[in-house]
Design a protein around this nucleic acid. Structure first.
Length: 615
RNA sequence: GCUUCGAUAGCUCAGCCUGGUAGAGCGUUACCUUGGUAAGGUAAAGGUCGCGGGUUCAAUUCCCGCUCGAAGCUCCA
């Protein structure tokens, strides 16, 4: 809504002719007013009661200031180019009129061409203009709002199964756990240091911010896409081995769909919303909805349970607070494997829960993280703990080091048990990777049913597992580990199976290029990513570049190699230069990458033909 | 989201305090060099100093707003 507001000595207007069919009925007499505030109003698309209310409020405030009690609302279309329809505009104007109680309010007829004469006072507040828009609805979910009211009790559980009071626990040998617990966290960190992985994600041409999108929606360069694909493939493979069945579900949902509204209010995340064709859609924050709605349509018997549905969600969206976003650690759009197991009862759920705990551990280690890189937190309701103490002790024992425990007096979310593995980075920041939850609510909420042994329909217990956590976050963790190595004076590296280039060939002279091409063909036929640096640079310079790109193996090809048919292999990891016969070398690379997925080089093979993406 | 800080060439940064429209290194391009395990040489191109407004004769420089980013708070995959 746009308003031009004038404090007048006098105004008079005369309706001359109807401008639109739906013009209000009115008499054609001239109306005169003295000592009055005139508000010329253009009602715009989307203006509603809240706008009417706000507008009147603002008008009242300014009228108080100038000490005037008479108001004339004057429909004036020319203030805006995106007008509301005449019907809704008239309604809004009428609403404004009725809202302006305690004033002497008049309203000029709507839909008429009018002639008018006006005399405006000369004081500074006599002429003002206002633009009023509907304020953003507060769509924060109830769960987000309620989160701050949760009562939790914090403990540390040691591998012997003993719960220690949080305050009394000696963290001196468990600095990472301390960081996770935020207990006396070191507040004097070097302030100027920014998250090291952000620099590396750019330098290694993995990902970058995209200012033209929303914050937290990143672009992934060829290296980043390749690494993401490899991680996605690896996790998917592991989940398939465990018994997960891959599905695909939509990324947006109608927030007024009956099963959505309540779930929405039980999930503690802010969401993106999209209005299209009168529907109010929101972007998923996980695969939960999609898989629940799908399971709802399945016919299931107790014999089928557990049913395990899996999706790699590209993307899941969470509209995190802008100040929380950092590089690949915290995003608004991220890729997350999400695997739900629908179980017939608590016994089965717990059995399944154990399997997924092992799966998650295996996946984290397979991705190149170590047990010492992650700290576990486990959260549960007091009731669940009383009934399942031994399960929790068993999990902590497997981890073999103290674990952070949060106990809720009563069930707060839809789950009664949840654990995560948290990665602690160079700045002492903790981020959750793998997680699993026991959900006792959504089976009912989504009316997911299976038929039990007695032919009675039952709602399953649902487990929500992400064995790796967000894929981007895995890359973040690997980069942070690399940054830690740099700090320690060690060479940073990727696990070989994730390296964008695994082998680089450098030809000493241009004449050898054809030979190099043949060699590269041979190597890549064994599923190894190999490229060729044939740029017009010195060998030393090209070796240096290979080092800077963290390339594990560099093969220098000159007369000697061509004549001897032996490979000259520079191994960046050990720093030595070795001679290998071809098969021996291939064997070494394949051995280092065994049981891991492979994808071909995601770049032009010849360096001289490549665009340069980062320094 | 809030508080504090920042944005200058593709990248990393200097200049700004004390206003008079810019510099380096790397990278890019061209030429020379035909190389043996972490930087061969010469030259050139490349900037509406994040965007918008204000102050001023004059703004990259001072002030305000916005956008994007960083740290902290809070939170999570």
């Amino acid at each position: 809504m746009r308003i031009l507001q004038l404090h007048c000595d006098k105004i008079e207007y005369t309706p001359t002719e109807k401008e639109i069919k739906s013009a209000e009925e009115t008499d054609l007499a001239t109306k005169k007013f003295d000592e009055i505030v005139v508000a010329f109003v253009a009602v715009e698309e989307g203006d509603d009661s809240s706008v009417a209310k706000k507008a009147i409020q603002e008008i009242l405030e300014s009228m108080n200031k100038v000490g005037c009690k008479k108001l004339l609302l004057y429909p004036y279309a020319h203030l805006s180019s995106k007008l509301a329809s005449p019907n809704s505009a008239l309604n809004v104007l009428k609403e404004m009129q009725s809202l302006a109680q305690g004033l002497d309010v008049s309203r000029a007829p709507f839909g008429w061409t009018k002639s008018f004469m006006i005399q405006v006072k000369g004081h500074p507040l006599a002429e003002t203009s206002k633009i009023i828009t509907a304020k953003d609805e507060d769509e924060t979910s109830e769960a987000v709002k309620a989160e701050s009211k949760i009562k939790s009790f914090w403990h540390i559980m040691t591998p012997d199964g003993i719960m220690h009071d949080f305050k009394d626990f000696d963290f001196s040998k468990h600095k990472q756990l301390e960081a996770l617990s935020k207990y006396e966290s070191d507040k004097k960190r070097s302030v100027d240091e920014s998250s090291p992985h952000v620099k590396l994600m750019k330098k290694m041409a993995i990902a970058d911010y995209e200012p033209a999108s929303d914050s937290g929606n990143l672009r992934f360069y060829p290296n980043g896409r390749l690494i993401k694909s490899l991680i996605e493939n690896y996790v998917s493979e592991k989940i398939r081995e465990y018994g997960g069945i891959e599905v695909e579900t939509p990324i947006m949902y109608d927030s007024h769909h009956p099963s959505m509204e309540s779930y929405f209010n039980r999930f503690p995340a802010r969401h993106y919303s999209i209005n299209a064709e009168g529907k109010h859609l929101f972007l998923r924050f996980s695969a939960c909805f999609g898989q629940f709605l799908m399971a709802n349509d399945f016919q299931m018997s107790y014999r089928n349970m557990p049913v395990r549905l899996y999706e790699i969600t590209r993307y899941s969206f969470r509209r995190e607070q802008s100040g929380e976003l950092v590089g690949l650690r915290r995003l608004r759009a991220f890729t997350m494997p999400d695997c739900h197991a629908f179980c017939k009862d608590m016994d089965q759920a717990i059995e399944e829960f154990r399997k997924r705990f092992e799966l998650s551990r295996q996946v984290i280690l397979g991705l190149g993280l170590e047990e010492s890189d992650v700290e576990m937190a486990i959260r549960f309701t007091e009731d669940f703990y009383k009934q399942n103490k031994s399960l929790i002790q068993e999990l902590v024992k497997k981890i073999g080091k103290p674990v952070l425990v949060e106990m809720w007096k009563e069930k707060f979310f839809y789950f009664i048990l949840k654990w995560e593995f948290n990665f602690i980075d160079n700045l002492g920041k903790a981020s959750a990777l793998s997680t699993d939850q026991i959900d006792v609510e959504n089976g009912k909420r989504y009316n997911i049913e299976y038929t039990d042994e007695n032919n009675i329909p039952q709602n399953p217990i649902i487990l929500h597992n992400s064995p790796s956590g967000a894929v981007e976050r895995i890359i973040y963790a690997l980069l942070e580990k690399a940054a830690a190595d740099i700090k320690k004076g060690k060479k940073p590296e990727f696990p070989l199976w994730l390296a964008p280039t695994q082998v680089r060939i450098i030809s000493v002279k241009p004449e050898f290029f054809n030979y190099c091409e043949g060699l590269a063909d041979k190597i890549s036929s064994s599923d190894i990513r190999v490229d060729i640096d044939e740029r017009n640079e010195s060998v030393a310079k090209r070796i240096r570049d290979s080092e800077i790109e963290w390339i594990r193996y560099t093969l220098v090809v000159g007369e000697k190699e061509i004549n001897s048919e032996k490979l000259n292999v520079r191994d960046r990891k050990t720093g030595e230069v070795r001679e290998h016969v071809f098969d021996e070398f291939i064997g070494e690379v394949k051995n280092e990458t065994k049981n891991k997925p492979f994808l071909p080089l995601n770049m032009t093979r010849r360096l001289s033909l490549r665009p340069q993406i980062m320094v």
